[in-house]
Design a protein around this nucleic acid. Structure first.
Lengths: 155, 155
DNA sequence: GCCATATACTTCAATTTTTGAACTATTCAA
DNA sequence: TTGAATAGTTCAAAAATTGAAGTATATGGC
């Protein structure tokens, strides 16, 4: 009776199958974050991973489909712990750029490489399938950002 | 400068691209849940969608990579609102089966069809790409469940 | 059959995370 | 120059999650 799950899922629409797969993977990835670096919370990990380069808080909010006050809270704790600093955006002095410190860079590198390994284990996909999945995932992300970000905040 | 995002993402490893795509889609889907049915919380929506047939709470916990007390809380509120009932599992009288009521079925059908439409809009994928994404997502989900569920709880 | 141990779920208080509304500072456009 | 919009902050409240201790049932060895 162990094959029931996938058999039943096979009868669902591709959209629902996709959603369930995405949820399963998301939850698995979140769960595994717990095992990596103890002093970082999930929102902190998310923010670190997003900060491949200095970004405005508003951009992060749009990117994480979150709300400004949430970003403020996460940025506060990362700043306090020494992972990033706030710098005024010279192009718009209302805005802050979040810039990783050396320590932040290192933590991010660790997270990113761990996450890669983690995806591999959690998904069970081979290299070719991963490449194909990545292609579609990139397309999806582009579309989400395009439709999700209110204005031209794509910096 | 609007193409920066995807251009930069293109240089990341396929695993990280996949993860970022999955996160973007997950967050987008969550965000859109807010717009659908007002009297259901996110965990309630998740649980409803999972209940394509009666399931034990422990199975749901494993499936949602969550903890028993969380499942109890969500089941309580869904039961109280009339979406499901608890029935003792005849095969193991310690366990409860969560069974959708008529109202629960209807809410689930609505959610599932909305979610399908939603995936379509959020992802921007065409039918062929959706099918391919679904195939990989199914594979991923199988793997996550296989490695994530402690024992033989695959009912 | 009986006991010790394991399992399925519940309870509840504490923690973590997210939110919305009111606020400050800066920009933009007329 | 002024009024409206935007970027981010503050803070108190709401939502979600957790872990530890508890109840009831099952299971395996004796």
């Amino acid at each position: 009776m162990s094959e029931d799950i996938s058999a039943r899922l096979g009868r669902l629409s591709p959209e629902i199958q996709s959603i369930m797969g995405v949820y399963a993977l998301y939850w698995k990835l979140e769960e595994t974050f717990d095992c990596i670096e103890t002093d970082l919370s999930h929102p902190e990990c998310h923010m670190l991973i997003k900060l491949d380069q200095p970004k405005r808080m508003g951009v992060l909010a749009a990117d994480m489909l979150s709300v400004p006050s949430t970003i403020t809270a996460t940025a506060d704790s990362l700043e306090k712990a020494g992972y990033l600093t706030r710098e005024r955006d010279p192009e718009d002095r209302r805005a802050w750029l979040l810039v990783l410190t050396k320590q932040g860079e290192e933590a991010r590198n660790m997270l990113v490489s761990e996450a890669g390994e983690l995806f591999h284990r959690a998904s069970g996909l081979n290299a070719e399938e991963t490449a194909e999945f990545a292609r579609l995932a990139r397309k999806i992300r582009d579309n989400v950002l395009k439709t999700g970000i209110p204005e031209g905040l794509t910096k």
